[in-house]
Design a protein around this nucleic acid. Structure first.
Lengths: 197, 197
DNA sequence: AGGTTAAAACTAGAGGTCTTAGGAATGGGG
DNA sequence: CCCCATTCCTAAGACCTCTAGTTTTAACCT
């Protein structure tokens, strides 16, 4: 029987495609094997198991998303950068729902593998870079980054879960949310007594 | 063999407990049956299947969370109410991680069953009520509600996924995020040209 | 009390999944 | 050309979901 030419990467990509098509929890070893024209057991040469595969999909997605954001924000500053960053984030979640879902799973990723992935560190740099123009300093900077990431992630997650059943289109709320966040970053409230606790 | 006295509700609760203990995706028919001292097949008298059980857990969680929030915000207004609301939300996610995860799944819930659940409607009322003091009007009100829900959900989701690896404690960032959101609600930016698109 | 009956729980089994173990083919390096 | 590490396979065990058909239970009725 001719070799299929599998690699860990090809298996991961097949899994990611499957995730986007039928949902992350429909990604099984068997399905991925079938898609690659191979028996289930053959995958275990390249991937430790289902958990490992899921982790690799998550890492792939994180990298891809970071790249999109980097492209989108390149050369922009201030609110332009904020909107480009956020739109790229949401766009990725929309076009790759399965991959995006994978990024939400608690980190059960092989640490050694994770160390090789450029995504996370780069993502952090991008976010801090985007906020540079607002003149925040630590620890406000970290807090602001966390607030932004929370809002972006929360919005697309709720959107995907069907949480916005209301009349008003999510798109409109999204635009207004970005307006609001921009305003907020420009007028970031000073820490008050007791906030260091 | 003596009857176990199962009901759909008892099965759901067993599933919810299991979810909190070992994670939602470890909740299987077999495990739930084992916990109840019953054979797998017996569960199908009370619950349509695994999907259905998951949906019921999600509904249970939504109701419980809403109740906690209602209790916490009762009698409060303004920033007090905002903080109580948010803290109750986060607290629920922390103490019931499996149940909370269940609420994130896209709605595959039996519509008939969902109609009976008081949670969702009540949750919406609570949120709008909490914002009453800020003097917002539609459609800003809807946008603000969506922003808050996104941020709350996003924060606890990232927290649970290990997304806040930084030095600074999530608790501190949470407190500051609430400060920031309060400020934002007090100075909600007016809609600009083109925002209705 | 005893008999009837609907529901609850069981046994059996088909079909799917994950994973390990060990055997056979393949193709690149000596 | 042949070695042999790697790739892919078959086989098999354990577990899972769900359906069908059967037995047991408890509640109701006279």
């Amino acid at each position: 029987m001719a070799r299929a030419g599998l690699t860990a990467e090809r298996v991961t990509i097949a899994g990611a495609e499957l995730a986007d098509e039928v949902g992350l929890d429909q990604v099984t070893m068997s399905q991925v094997a079938r898609r690659l024209g191979v028996k289930d057991a053959s995958l275990y040469t390249h991937v430790r198991g289902l958990e490992d595969l899921r982790g690799r999909i998550a890492l792939l997605a994180a990298d891809e998303k970071t790249i999109r954001i980097a492209e989108a924000t390149s050369g922009r500053a201030g609110k332009d950068a904020l909107v480009a960053f956020a739109d790229a984030w949401r766009e990725y979640a929309h076009t790759h729902p399965g991959r995006y879902t994978a990024t939400q799973t608690p980190i059960r990723i092989d640490p050694e593998l994770a160390a090789k992935a450029p995504g996370p560190r780069r993502a952090v740099e991008l976010t801090y870079g985007m906020l540079r123009g607002y003149g925040l300093t630590e620890p406000d900077l970290t807090d602001a980054v966390r607030l932004l990431r929370s809002t972006f992630h929360g919005f697309v997650a709720l959107e995907a879960a069907g949480g916005f059943a209301h009349e008003r289109s999510p798109r409109q709320s999204w635009v207004r949310a970005l307006d609001a966040l921009h305003t907020l970053l420009e007028h970031w409230p000073p820490a008050r007594e007791g906030d260091s606790a």
